[in-house]
Design a protein around this nucleic acid. Structure first.
Length: 292
DNA sequence: GAGGCATCCTGTAAGC
DNA sequence: TGCTTACAGGATGCCT
């Protein structure tokens, strides 16, 4: 499941293999894979140059240029991988993947870009860039907060906003308008490292504790990035189709009844927001006034 | 305005 | 063996 580290791995692949190339044609094979008007995508992309590969949280985008000029791009190809999306750079003659949703061919007749997505939670679209912020971002994601690996992320502001919330800390971590790029897996891992239960009321957290949690979020993401991301099956791969290995390093996620790596207590699984939370009963005791 | 929950989707695994 | 059900989860929209 792609979270920030996995998406960053994909971004680096796009920067290396796709940036600077001009689109010859685009083909939409599943309407749900493209937001707005799916019929428009081929016409809007044809002849445009994919300038570079940018990322905020779990969103990727490639600003679109009209030629060799150095004018500021006004729009971008925006992508979210959802649960199972993959952006693959493959030989045009390679057989079609079972869940191929969008195919983009280039004018240089080199490797093509394919959007493959089994569960169709991911999507592509072309959107205008909002030029107002210091770093232009596509308009559909202007409500997304910077991610903790960005320079623009403000630790103090994050702590203030978390303490103003009246909810559980894991809900806050998953709220992309507070902090982007954190999903269920890395939320559980960071909370374990910071010895916090997921239902801890946000208003009871001190500023130093929030700083410790942020450090844990950054540490787990940086380590995952170093190993090419997390993969439990073949659903997540980088642009060349290679899986990451970080799942071997997970301390709690998916380790129900296995011993905690700190104290040996069996890891518990609890239902949370129609999904799962994994934690250590001893290291992460249920708080008073828990907010599920 | 903020918080919380159902919904979208498909493949896999478990249960009967 | 074959069918049914539960589960996985990011973002959105709706309800309170």
């Amino acid at each position: 499941m792609p979270e920030l580290p996995e998406v960053e791995v994909v971004r680096r692949g796009l920067e290396r293999w796709v940036a600077g190339r001009t689109v010859a044609s685009a083909e939409v094979l599943h309407p749900r894979a493209v937001r707005r008007d799916p019929g428009d995508l081929p016409a809007v992309l044809k002849g445009r140059t994919l300038r570079s590969a940018e990322r905020r949280g779990k969103y990727l985008w490639m600003p679109l240029g009209d030629g060799p000029g150095d004018e500021e791009p006004a729009d971008a190809l925006l992508a979210h991988l959802g649960m199972s999306g993959q952006l693959l750079v493959v030989d045009p003659a390679a057989p079609e993947e079972k869940h191929l949703r969008v195919r983009i061919r280039f004018a240089d007749d080199g490797p093509e870009l394919r959007f493959v997505d089994q569960r169709t939670f991911g999507h592509l679209l072309v959107a205008p860039l909002d030029p107002r912020p210091a770093r232009p971002v596509p308009q559909p994601i202007t409500h997304i907060a910077p991610d903790p690996l960005e320079e623009a992320f403000d630790d103090e502001e994050f702590a203030v906003r978390v303490r103003l919330r009246r909810t559980g800390i894991k809900r806050a971590l998953l709220d992309q308008s507070l902090i982007s790029g954190v999903g269920n897996i890395y939320a559980d891992e960071a909370l374990w490292r910071a010895r916090l239960h997921w239902a801890r009321p946000t208003e009871t957290l001190t500023q130093p504790k929030i700083a410790e949690l942020l450090a844990a979020v950054r540490a787990v993401m940086t380590e995952a990035l170093g190993q090419g991301g997390t993969s439990f099956d073949s659903l997540y791969v980088n642009v060349n189709g290679e899986s990451g290995y970080f799942d071997r390093s997970l301390a709690v996620y998916g380790r129900r009844d296995e011993p905690c790596r700190r104290c040996g207590t069996p890891i518990r699984r609890e239902a949370f927001m129609n999904r799962s939370s994994y934690s250590c009963p001893k290291c992460q005791p249920v708080p008073k006034n828990a907010r599920p």
